[in-house]
């Protein structure tokens, strides 16, 4: 594992406990239990709040913050999650250091290939992810045209993997209507597997267009700029790991701070 240093960086969840958003939650019902000589906030960590889970049973709610620095995660995105078990019941997305895109930023297929590498890594396929990263480097160093045949090979390899299809099939299926309502690009329709295939197809097409000298398609990723407003809804009701797969499958090239940044979205 060559990235140990980065794993588990995000543990700042304890500072960010905002209990203000839990009005109307039932704090009663705990009286009369035998607390013994229990300390109420050991090590300065306050007790978790309870809440109804999706099966209608009471379950702890834990506040965990994902991002802004996390492997295979959209840069700068911070997702404040309320977890019950590992299921995200409530989420709020914001952007750290939201800035306008600079001219010298990397655009075009390399960005897309990077996102493919992230999704493959999150799906637990280290080998294919490493291959995608290598292709991305080729695309950056020796021009995008050089990556064409390798990218085509990666696409074939991913398409042939029935275990990957089995794993990603049906994960957060989005209908036309939903995608439109959340102002997601039209190619976000379908499940996570469809979106991965779309990413690969777009990367292959983008590389081919660059090789042909067609600058027009190079910059057609304007549609891949998403507002943080629409992300939180997508991950609610999913478990932590699935949520990350779904976010990675959106092929985010650029994030915009949403207008409703401080509005909590309830599931």
């Amino acid at each position: 594992m060559d990235h140990e240093g980065h794993e588990g960086m995000d543990h700042g969840s304890h500072e960010g406990m905002e209990h203000g958003s839990h009005e109307g939650m039932d704090h009663g019902g705990h009286e009369g239990m035998d607390h013994g000589d229990m300390e109420m906030s050991p090590g300065g960590i306050p007790l978790a709040e309870g809440g109804e889970d999706r099966d209608g049973l009471e379950m702890d709610v834990l506040q965990v913050r994902l991002g802004p620095v996390l492997r295979d995660w959209p840069a700068g995105l911070v997702l404040h999650c309320s977890l019950q078990g590992d299921v995200i019941v409530e989420a709020q997305a914001e952007l750290v250091d939201g800035r306008a895109r600079q001219d010298d930023d990397v655009v075009g297929p390399a960005r897309g290939i990077d996102n493919i590498a992230s999704l493959l890594a999150l799906a637990g396929w280290d080998d294919a992810a490493a291959e995608a990263r290598r292709i991305r480097d080729t695309a950056l160093e020796s021009g995008e045209g050089a990556a064409g045949s390798e990218l085509e090979r990666l696409r074939r390899r991913v398409r042939r993997s029935w275990t990957l299809r089995w794993s990603l099939r049906g994960v957060r299926r989005l209908s036309d209507k939903e995608a439109h309502a959340r102002r997601l690009p039209a190619d976000a329709v379908g499940d996570t597997y469809d979106r991965l295939m779309g990413m690969l197809d777009r990367a292959v097409a983008g590389v081919a267009a660059t090789a042909a000298g067609d600058i027009g398609t190079r910059t057609n990723d304007a549609g891949r700029t998403l507002s943080t407003d629409h992300l939180a809804h997508l991950v609610m009701g999913l478990d932590l790991a699935t949520a990350r797969l779904v976010l990675a499958s959106l092929d985010i090239h650029e994030l915009l701070a949403g207008q409703a940044e401080h509005e909590v979205s309830h599931g």
Partner: peptide, 14 residues
């Protein structure tokens, strides 16, 4: 546990 401090230090007897 019925009460959330299942993850917290607590007495095991009553």
């Amino acid at each position: 546990m019925g009460m959330n401090p299942a993850l917290m230090p607590m007495s095991m007897v009553h």
